[in-house]
Write a protein that binds this DNA or RNA. Sequence first.
DNA 1: ACGGCTATAACT
DNA 2: TAGTTATAG
Length: 701
Amino acid sequence: MPVARPETSDSRVIAHVDMDCFYVQVEQRKHPELRGLPTAVVQYNSWKGGGLIAVSYEARKCGVKRSMRGAESKQVCPEIQLVQVPVARGKADLNSYRSAGSEVVSILSRKGRCERASIDEVYLDLTEAAETMLAEAPPESLEAIDEEALKSHVLGLNNEDGSDARENVRKWICNSNERRDKLLACGALIVAELRLQVLKETEFTCSAGIAHNKMLAKLASGMNKPAQQTIVPLSSVKGLLDSLPIKKMKQLGGKLGSSLQTDLERYGINTGTWLWNIARGISGEEVEGRLLPKSHGSGKTFPGPQALKTISSVQHWLNELCEDLSERLQLDLEQNKRIAHTLVLHATAYKASDSDSQKKFPSKSCSLRYGAAKIQEDALSLFQAALREYLGLFTAKIQGSQNNQWGITSLSVSASKIVPIPSGTASIMKYFHGRQPSTSTNQSQNNLIEESAPLSPSDNDNDSEVKITKPQIEFPGEETRMNYGVPSLDQPEDRNLLNDQNPCCSSKNQAQDEFTLDSLPLSTSGSEKCSAGNQSQLMKNYSGEEPCVKPAMPSVNRQEQKRKSVNDKGTSSILRFFKNQDPSCAQQKLEHVENIEDVKAPVTLGPQSRSDNCLDRNQSELPNERPFEETGTSSSSVSAQFEQRRGVWSYNTDEIDPSVIDELPPEIQQEVRAWLRPHKRHNVAKRGSSIADYFSPTKNA
DNA sequence: ACGGCTATAACT
DNA sequence: TAGTTATAG
């Protein structure tokens, strides 16, 4: 079992040196005519030409693999040169390789503590040497950087096409501001020199990894072979680990690794990564800055004997719960200018009879219509739909006020998908400049409502039969009506109409104890009307074409929405993960760094948080607060905070939907495009040039 | 039948 | 999406 070894000192410089197909090199040195030819070392010859234990890179190019048999390798690569491992006392004799390894160690051990990890692997602690070099002859002071060092691979170093990789490395080595990078750079110089020395004195090539600990150095040494070296700057660690199959990690190549692998795979990339990270005390979770709840719910349990066994009792309690919920929704609307879009009904139930009693009572949801009565009505319909589903279509009809088959042990209704009323339009501004909502007149409410119309669930009464657009959001005060430019129905008519169309769906007028299963809304054949009505009237949720995000707010909102949906769907697993990491998850990086290396000073990175946070905050987090004032008028402390922060937020260019740009004013388009083109600087947060600034409501409004 | 209720989030 | 499930204060 591996043992946890917390990092003791910070900023060590560790190298792992790995000989390239070492046995082959040893044999080639012994038989120079084999140099450059596809070569493999086999042990034992008796069966199928023996097993390969080392394969030259030329042979690998032909598809020869370790673990192949000699004969097999001949098939893949007919010209392969097979060299047998010496045999002594009837067994493979590795002594020549051991002593060759010793030659190498004697060279590598010249610059620092050296650990012979295997016959062809060595760890070096070059901390002191690197520190000394940094103090006495730092890279930038050198007139030239060793050619071999310039060939280093620096993980995470931008290697754009067309740019001179070697020059980039030189800059990284010489111009780094981070002391620990500097130390690694010194380490890399030393290792390059050592490797050259090894080549010169032994004729062997090797590869190396240079990092702050053994694990990372070992990982890196294998990344660029043969005869190359790879540096792992602190900043690249997270990306490296994230991209790494667990098995690649030292000590995780076996059972432990595969058990981890399968377990983590079973849990998925997100949970897996999360586990991986929390195990190290790493958590990039941001404080979300959300002041308001995301849903409201009201529920009650009816344990055991109290279980509800009649629809009417259910209805009674639903009514109570819905009233409670409705009140709170109303309050949220008035105080926070938010509208909930989805009504969800949850219940738990038991079925006395069959052993099927395990079955879960399904949750149901529908568009939320404001007003206690509507919520009650809809909740009951949801319940009935769920109950029918729960009991199954075949179940015998139950008549009367009692049933001995089922009981409801808990009921709850909740309202979710709460979004702020779109702001920034003329009428909304007018509204906000008007009276407080509690005392608001119908007029002002109407303004509000009209503005929020696009926010409402896509109309769900466009039944084939009911050709009337009915408002989705209605307000409790019975007098309040909405009008979407279509003649609005008075509520009673409305209800009647619906009831006429879908009698079975309107539980409302039914005598309470007369419920039969037949009277429950069906979701399958037998009562298409009900089904259709139920589906469109109740089940349809507000997604549709997402009218909520399109009209009122400018492109920000649309972009945001688009980005979100794109993000949430495809790009899964690793790609997605990288994407999530990329936008300088500064916090997470920092924490990681701190954890690994006990570091204090953060890299000063662009501060942008995930852009959706920005918007969420901007739009939804102003309880009891006007979203924004026209200009100079006093902002409360809350909005002042937002003002303050806004200057710091900016968008990650990766996350900007290009189509959004087309919607900007031409002069802005130009600026934005110019800004996007370089596509490198993530931390462009200068006030006045970021997209965030453009979108900032106080500007360009 | 014994914790109830509220709330959030991942996942499918 | 809608629905399920788990979790937590």
